[in-house]
Write a protein that binds this DNA or RNA. Structure first.
Ligand SMILES: [Mn+2]
Ligand SMILES: [Mn+2]
Ligand SMILES: [Mn+2]
Ligand SMILES: [Mn+2]
Lengths: 225, 225
DNA sequence: AGACAGAGTTAGTCTTGCCTAACTTATTCC
DNA sequence: GGAATAAGTTAGGCAAGACTAACTCTGTCT
């Protein structure tokens, strides 16, 4: 039995905090104050303040000095914002010809202003997309997220052929470079060689060969075969 | 010689105040505290506070107890927001099939979050519209606004044939009713009769006859012939 | 001229969200 | 086990933007 409680419209900063906490928790299992601060570009002390408020509103639980976890309500709100963000990114590229390196910043603001109605119309207009332009899966209206297991390209053995599934979308410059290299979701890649000690990685992309650093290779998520 | 000064990104409330002041000034020649407060749904004291801040930032001039006027910079900012608002309304109806009674509220939020880039792409995608769905003219990118002289339907003589140019867009309910009556921009109407003392007005709309009150008729702006 | 209504302002308070500086806790390392 | 270090928190401030209550203009009406 679920009690339907109208969420009392969250502010833009609150939505951004929840989103970041969701993503950190998915990675580490727990979200730390400094991590959240770094991700949002605010001072750690500001995070402590917000964490108190989020806990008071029942969106997270907080163990002092131990990190935070989303509650059911917090997780729901986070997934709603993530859905909005990714639908907006998908719509901007597919319907308005936006380049994939610009959509993130735009979506970062619009995600707080668009109504559910608008998000649904956008999604419908481009055929209910399941991923955003960077390959990130889009949560459903109902708040379920199907996150497939993916491998960072940096961890793929030499000789293996993989398909690009998803790339990091925070850095616009990096996205432009990836596009230039031809590394976009759906692309087939073969790892030709890997220098030891975190050295450069050679790739065959289509019929050309390119070499990238391991840092970049960590941002490229692939599926084998 | 114009000095190019980057406006230090205005907040959403500031943009809304400037928009409202622009519209009141266009009407009365001056914007009063209480008018602004009523328009924004805020206490008059809140307006006094904001007015001080806007004046400090050089967006308005303020004579105590006398009302406010936009400066050049304030007018420019107001027109920018109005352009955004109307382009968004036009885009939502033309590209996403939004009904005309819902676009205002949506645009009221999105106008503060969309980049100039996005507004330009939206405008381009629907063929550089010159009016919004309610017939309001859209300011140009350069900040000029061509506001044609229009007559409220309430002031039209019996027997005169007019064309609907623009309708008030604040009240969603009213917009639904107007749509039901068939009173939308572009529509031809003939005034059949007007009862005295602010009485009801009979109209021929297409081949049907409808009667409306004078309050509603003030919200309908028309051009003769 | 004086009174009064309406418009506008001031004073004081609240919440949100941010900051820096100083402090406390947890962990790690010798 | 105790010191160093990293992580996290508290204290104290600030600006924006809202509120209520109390005060002050301004203009009008007699
Ligand atoms: Mn955001
Ligand atoms: Mn993305
Ligand atoms: Mn607005
Ligand atoms: Mn409109």
């Amino acid at each position: 039995m679920t009690s339907i409680r109208a969420l009392p419209t969250l502010t833009a900063p609150v939505e951004d905090y929840l989103k970041v906490i969701f993503e950190l928790e998915a990675g580490d299992g727990v979200a730390g104050t400094n991590e959240i601060a770094a991700e949002l570009g605010v001072a750690p002390a500001s995070v402590s303040g917000m964490v108190r408020r989020l806990a008071e509103h029942g969106l997270i639980t907080h163990e002092r000095y131990r990190g935070v976890h989303l509650t059911k309500a917090g997780r729901r709100a986070a997934l709603r914002t993530i859905r909005r963000h990714r639908v907006i990114e998908a719509y901007l590229t597919r319907a308005l010809g936006y380049p994939w390196d610009l959509v993130h910043d735009e979506a970062e603001r619009l995600e707080h202003a668009a109504s559910d109605e608008l998000i649904d119309r956008m999604a419908a207009a481009i055929g209910e997309p399941t991923t955003d332009p960077h390959g990130a899966p889009i949560p459903t209206r109902e708040g379920t997220l199907d996150e497939p297991e993916l491998l960072p390209l940096a961890a793929v053995e030499v000789g293996v052929r993989v398909r690009v599934q998803r790339v990091g979308d925070r850095d616009a410059e990096q996205l432009r470079y990836l596009a230039e290299l031809g590394i976009t979701p759906g692309r087939q890649i073969e790892v030709l060689s890997r220098a030891p000690f975190e050295g450069p990685i050679s790739l065959r992309i289509g019929r050309v060969t390119k070499t990238i650093g391991p840092g970049l290779a960590k941002q490229i998520l692939v599926a084998v075969r």
